[in-house]
Nucleic acid binder design. Sequence first.
RNA 1: GCGGAUGUGGCGUAAUUGGUAGCCGCGCCAGACUUAGGAUCUGGUGCCGAAAGGCGUGGGGGUUCGAGUCCCUUCAUCCGCACCA
Length: 920
Amino acid sequence: MEYNFREVERKWQDYWRENNTYRVHADPDKPKYYVLDMFPYPSGAGLHVGHPLGYIASDIYARYKRQKGFNVLHPMGYDAYGLPAEQYAIQTGQHPAITTASNITRYREQLDRIGFSYDWDREVRTCDPGYYKWTQWTFIQLFNHYFDNRTNKAEPIGELEKTFAHSGNLDVNAACGQPEPFTAVEWLRMGVGERRQVLMNYRLAYLSDTVVNWCPKLGTVLANDEVKEGFSVRGGHPVEQKKMRQWFLRITAYADRLLQGLEQLHWSESLKEIQRNWIGRSEGATIFFSLKGHDATIEVFTTRPDTIFGATFMVLAPEHSLVTRITAPGYRAGVEEYVKKAASKSERERMAEVKKVSGQFTGAYAIHPFTGEPMPVYVADYVLAGYGTGAIMAVPGHDSRDHAFATHFKLPIIRVVSGQEDTQGSYDAREGSMINSGFMDGMEVSQAICAATAKLEGRGIGKARVNFRLRDAIFSRQRYWGEPFPVYYKDGIPYVLDEKALPLELPPVDTYLPTATGEPPLARAKDWHTPEGYPLECNTMPGFAGSSAYYIRYMDPRNEEQLVSEQAVTYWENVDLYVGGAEHATGHLIYARFWNKFLFDTGVVVMDEPFKKLINQGMIQGRSNFVYRIRGSNRFVSHGLKDSYETMAIHVDVNLVDNDVLDLEAFRKWNPEFAEAEFILEDGNYICGWEVEKMSKSFHNVVTPDDLIERYGADTLRLYEMFLGPVEQAKPWDTQGIEGVFRFIRKLWRLFHDPGNRFAVSDEAAGESEKKVLHKAIKKVSGDIERFSFNTAVSAFMVCVNELTNMKCRKREILEPLVIMVSSFAPHIGEELWSLLGNTQSVAGAAFPDWDEKLVTDDTFIYPVSFNGKTRFKIELPAGASRQEVENAVLSAPEARKWLQGRQPKKVIVVTGKIVNIVI
RNA sequence: GCGGAUGUGGCGUAAUUGGUAGCCGCGCCAGACUUAGGAUCUGGUGCCGAAAGGCGUGGGGGUUCGAGUCCCUUCAUCCGCACCA
């Protein structure tokens, strides 16, 4: 055997572990670089080939940066809380910590075999009390801070209390719920409980009653991004709306900063766009409409205050608090029935009925602020309680939904913007000039928006306002396997624990189910109260709690005094390169940014944004194989002949198929059902059909790294994953192609060895052409790695090794730099060759070679000569030839005569060093 | 419906600024060494054509001496959002 990858890979993995090759410490003398992978949830299924794609890319980059002289932080850990372990606990009674620990062990084995350069001393697990102590600690800080809109940052709640004692809340401009206004005197008269209730309106972590996404099957509340089309993302169970008391994080306070912050980030445009949409900023105005016969007013949000003269009715969301108050006696029954019906509808049903117009008149009238006309007030579920104020002024002339409603209920439609003059439908565009609009007549829309807002503000019935789609994050989960809240209740009022009492550890319970009365599993715990006897919170935190600051903890993972030391965070700052899946676009990536901004405000971290550059690795899809069973028989027909029969395609395990040829014996053994199978072959083989699908057990197309490493080695797997295509692109996995990079590895080995497999590198000086090959490769590979174009870098290695093989170059001067370059992609063979070259230290610490620009430029250039844009022949000329020299040489070339056929060229275009084009 | 991305050989892909379309691999074809091996090496391989040559980057149109790359239009696939006032 010429290159024994099994032995070599094991040897170097042992070496790295024994010598702590990848251990890293803050070193102010070296520039830092922080490369982070999104840490995995350790599922019972283990890794398939799609999972390590991003890890391999980031590992190559981390190794490269290290060789470029950076002090690289490259840690790994586990997002250990998750539903599957809890579900397993419910079924089997096994504590989720045990399930999780054994899954982690399996993950670690798989990861170790791939040869990553992680500093495992920094490993974190979100379920470890030493880790979640700081998750709980951060919650306490959130509870003890509010967001001041004037300073645009989080401030201690104590400051707010001082302000209240001094001047009440009338002058406070803070992100808050809907506190009643009060004076300093009133504040001072309040009792402790009352004060804490007021403060709850301001805290960044707060308790509130709201309608939540309740999933009865899971027995828990879900965040918006955990619900998709009315079903839970995890498990696909129906989700309904329910009013409950929950902990929230006031992420909306940071909406503007979360939006602004995106500008400076090196993230993909599509990902930033997803976040922008999620935050959903829109500019407009709030307008207050007074009601006929009530002292209440309806507050609406509109982005089109210019169309106010076109407002002919009002609509409230069914959940709106004014509905019961203003409904006239004669309409009570109808409205109540409508509201009840709307509440019972699941979100999914509501969405399915988008096009159906429904609503109910309340009998109440609002008064138009400019015309004084009465405007009927309706209740309709096309207005959402959760957006804006839950109420709108309806402008049927210029909003298609209002138009549909007005048409259905025969309400007046007034045109106030002249644009497209069709009487059908509404004119929604923001272009045109105002008509029928009093003081705005003749203005352009944009001008009218300003004028209307100013007028409303002047009359004290409206205000310019920015509205966000982003909602505060629900932070309570009715589950066992999560971080306990550091909260206890005294007289029903929540208090946070003293920091000294942390971590508040997850208590044992007899079973992981909710109680008979519907309380969360923690209510089953014995002694679940403070030493003083106050009951502790029974909810636990959601998945995103532990993953929101793990990148900070890696900087100083064993610190028992602080989340992170000032020294560590000042040095490592934040993540320079973050690699992970795009599925976290609106979940983790927005919560982590929020969490980081809060810690930045409170001085814990030094950077406003956590992740400078982000790469989303593309999904690796499966390549499924099919056999075709002739209907009603146990006969299978080969792919090329299947159209002559009536067949049914059946997924076949891709591990029974090689190059689309089915292993018949293996297939018969695969499933007893096929033991007697008969085959109709083509050219003696059974050819399978194939299709690209998601990699999944049910499609029998899962390929694991373990099998491939066993057969080809980790270096080959690493190279092949990169060679497949751009990291960010989704692409199908086809094991077939791995042979190519496997050959490359062996070819690389042979470059250093004679035909008898004896190491045979010489110290002979390299020639010019050999140096050129090397230096071109250095330039290409460096540039490719910097651009995260790993697939082209692998191809550059192949070109380089092919050329050196052809030149029979076995010289140290050339091969040593080559080994260093290759070692970030294929670290095991890299170390082995590096040590064979006589080096005693790991190649991980070697300096990445530089290229000599003189050696990458050629003395001659082969000009392609085209006639009317079509390339006809090539001519080799000195690289320094002037335009005139090139033109002369080309025109006097014998091939030119053939194409000119005696004609005079109309024009000759010479781009030196590029091309010659002759126009005839 | 709105927003974003992607369309190049049989397959994965390449082509830093508008300048030789198909690099590097897989697969396929032919051959060498072998005395059968899923080893290695050599040559070929976009399509049509015997060749000369023609045609080719989803389709149509445009700008340009020159377009995979820029503009317009259209189709297909994927992803995100979706009664957001």
